[in-house]
Write a protein that binds this DNA or RNA. Structure first.
Lengths: 397, 397
DNA sequence: GGGGCTTGTGAGAGCGCTCTCAAGGATGTA
DNA sequence: TACATCCTTGAGAGCGCTCTCACAAGCCCC
């Protein structure tokens, strides 16, 4: 687990919590057609005048400083509430040199229709990203930070301007896999704190990943030792994805220990997506390629597509071919057969990423450039284990 | 479809796109241990000095104004590139009175473990929200806007301070279902442009929804006319969700036309989640309640839980009971049997929400307070239609 | 009762941009 | 050559905050 403050840091700034814009009060007329009055936005000067104090005092009360006497404080809080004042974030940020915003960037697939309507919302292959982001968001909330969410299209090869723009709007950046090249990351990280997820550490940025090596190793051993697979294919993700490369290497090395044959290569390359997985299998079957005993996919999404394509061609999983994934996204438990996979602590990855980034923003120098979180093999039906079998496979250290 | 500019509005501001922080250039040393130089952040003054011009000229070049001569422009662009300058978003926002940020708020379930490990990542019930947000984000990107993402815990009954804080950091707000009471929305909307999704329109905010009425009506007619269901249960979402209330009403009215019995009420109330759906079914079965011919669920997530609970108790779907959902989230196509549901144009909902909000931010007064997007019944296996049947059911106007 | 404290408050200088306004130089017209 | 006009550039105000510093008031002690 990631250490987290149960109480927000801003608990001290309690004036903020009680006085601002009372959105939770009694009912008001909701449908009256009266148009919004186009008053100029309120400033701290309006509040100060209304309360009969200086703007410095208003600022002090709003930021929970100890100094103002109760009487002054009350006057200010009353004025704030009566006027419905909300301080401007940009002005605060400019003055205090802290935006309380971190930017999160992920790479998304184009909206073009995929090969198969079953996988129509190709955005679904972002389930992993979404769950990570949720973890980031919750951790950020504990510190009063918010997420500035942006994405880079998969075929956008010059994301620099967009990312530079985000850097200007935030205090630090969280980059998902394959958003920027390592060189680009270094250049960015020289200007602003950067943490990457499932990427590569650089001299200036920290990377956070699940334990690809341990997880994939346990999974392959399970396939070989328990299910006696004599041939295993690795269906990779993007060729330039560090995670996929690492997973591939472990498959090779582990299989080699048992003299098990590994099949991989250009024909066995998906794009981390269900569509990609299905396309690979269909192409192989069309060309008459025989299926191996097991197909280890680079992630769950790919495995979903593999499952679908195999079953549509009359193959039985796990009878004819065993299929495994990686990540344990929620849907892995809803397919038939349920997917055997490696469970990553997805939300924790996000939370830890934020915590590290936060400490960098606070001026601490991270002592590790690469953080690895433990994972766990989860055996279910798709590898041939009975559905009733124990849900988790103890990690061999 | 939602109208969208293919070309970003900022295409004119091309200097920005070409000069800033060249993250896409040639490779640099990625792992050299040399620490980041802790230089003070660059400002427009540094650029001006380096280029031998005034800050006004730098600003002009950066914002793509026509005036500066090519020579001056080049000098500035070179200085920007050499220094790796990124303008500060807060200062820009303060001066130009535009942050180019919209805040998006959704309500999320607590992290507490659910009843059943199959639904362990309860966050999965946010698939709908995630896909909407993706639509928002893509539409926003076309206008140079970014998303400030935040959430409110499901049991947080005073989200006011958090939301006020977000209002200060953004130009407008997009609220998902059940984030704020209608009164709270009005108060907020008097200060800042607000669009709600699947909520209620107010005098000051615009709401965007799928066509609950048409969609649910078609679905119920399908169950009655094609599958001759004589009793239909409506498994509702949160009691205070406008969408759920509307869907319930339509189920009742449509069934009444055919003299079909509708079952609903406190015992048939989920929380839009798989866990909630499973819990309801288990409780009913435990208490000896007989199942109706069909269960129409308030959303897909609930239907997933219902499917799971029924099958675990030995019921056959659709043989014994037919089950339907609403939304057509991606996983609906991956369960067995595939889920019959009402397809909402989820991503379009998000895109349209942004477009409306953007026009409000631009000062336009929306001419509609309530926008409804068409939906479509999708018949699959869970209602008893063969899996091979045509994937979509033409909407009867 | 005066000097030294502490404590609460206000004045005002930035923070890093954008944009108005005026000045200067180049060009055109009489 | 003198003067009006256009185009480019620079000076500087202002955006709405935070925070430092100086001051005023109240308190203590001798």
């Amino acid at each position: 687990m990631v250490p987290q403050d149960a109480t927000p840091e801003h608990a001290a700034d309690s004036a903020f919590d009680t006085a601002l814009l009372p959105l939770d009060g009694a009912a008001v007329d909701v449908l009256t057609a009266e148009p919004r009055k186009a008053t100029a936005p309120l400033t701290i000067y309006d509040v100060a005048r209304h309360a009969g104090v200086s703007i410095a005092s208003v600022s002090r009360v709003l930021n929970g400083h100890a100094t103002p006497r109760p009487e002054t404080r009350d006057r200010v809080l009353r004025a704030v509430a009566e006027l419905g004042f909300v301080p401007d974030g940009a002005a605060r940020a400019l003055s205090s040199r802290l935006k309380e915003i971190i930017a999160v960037v992920y790479r998304r697939a184009p909206l073009a229709p995929p090969d198969d309507p079953v996988f129509e919302d190709e955005s679904e292959n972002l389930a992993f990203v979404d769950v990570i982001n949720r973890g980031v968001q919750i951790a950020a909330q504990h510190r009063g930070f918010d997420l500035l969410l942006s994405s880079v299209e998969v075929d956008d090869h010059t994301p620099g301007p967009r990312i530079a723009n985000l850097a200007g709007k935030s205090d630090g950046m969280l980059l998902h896999d394959r958003v920027l090249t390592p060189s680009g990351i270094v250049r960015l990280a020289d200007r602003v704190p950067v943490v990457t997820l499932a990427g590569t550490p650089t001299r200036a940025s920290v990377n956070i990943s699940g334990d690809n090596i341990g997880g994939m190793r346990d999974l392959i051993k399970h396939l070989i030792e328990v299910h006696h697979c004599a041939s295993i294919a690795y269906l990779s993700g993007h060729a330039d994805s560090p995670d996929s490369v690492a997973r591939h290497r472990v498959v090779r090395e582990t299989a080699a220990e048992y003299d098990v044959r590994v099949i991989a290569g250009p024909h066995w390359t998906g794009e981390y997506s269900a569509t990609g997985g299905a396309r690979v299998i269909r192409a192989l079957l069309d060309s008459g390629t025989a299926m191996p005993d097991a197909i280890a996919c680079a992630n769950d999404q790919t495995a979903l597509g593999v499952l679908h394509a195999l079953q549509e061609r009359g193959y039985h999983v796990p009878g004819d071919v065993k299929v495994t994934g990686f990540d344990d996204i929620p849907v892995a438990r809803h397919v038939v057969p349920q997917l055997t996979t490696v469970r990553q602590p997805i939300q924790d990855l996000g939370a830890m990423a934020f915590d590290v980034l936060y400490s960098m923003i606070s001026g601490e120098r991270p002592d590790e450039r690469q953080l690895v979180l433990p994972v766990q093999v989860v055996v279910r039906g798709s590898c041939g284990c009975a559905a009733e079998s124990p849900p988790s496979f103890p990690r061999t250290a």
